[in-house]
């Protein structure tokens, strides 16, 4: 039975719950917008990283390089699309 619950994954799970609780603090604790956004940004990206590495085994095969390139490129495009659009349609006036 024990072998079915490897420490790495159990730790990963508790860590992700912890990150969620920290993120929830922005709702329950009074703080400024900047601090809240910083917390959200950090917890979200760390959380994504935990999923990627601990649960999705992104780095385990020989195609590690291709997989990480794809993910980084995707994140790059995502950030460009989101912030570029915000800059163009909202911020840049």
């Amino acid at each position: 039975m024990r072998e079915l619950f490897p420490a790495k994954q159990v730790m990963g799970y508790f860590f992700s719950l912890l990150l969620t609780v920290i993120a929830l603090a922005v709702y329950f604790v009074d703080m400024s917008y900047q601090v809240a956004m910083t917390i959200l940004l950090v917890t979200a990206f760390v959380q994504a990283g935990v999923q990627l590495v601990v649960f999705m085994h992104a780095g385990e095969s020989k195609d590690k390089w291709s997989i990480y390139t794809t993910v980084y490129y995707g994140v790059f495009i995502a950030l460009v699309t989101i912030f570029g659009s915000l800059l163009t349609l909202i911020w840049g006036y």
Partner: peptide, 22 residues
Amino acid sequence: THHGAKESDGTENTEQEMNDSM
């Protein structure tokens, strides 16, 4: 409106500031 969006409310302050600082 600004592209259909209502002009900034409280939460947009940071964006406004960011814009100004840029």
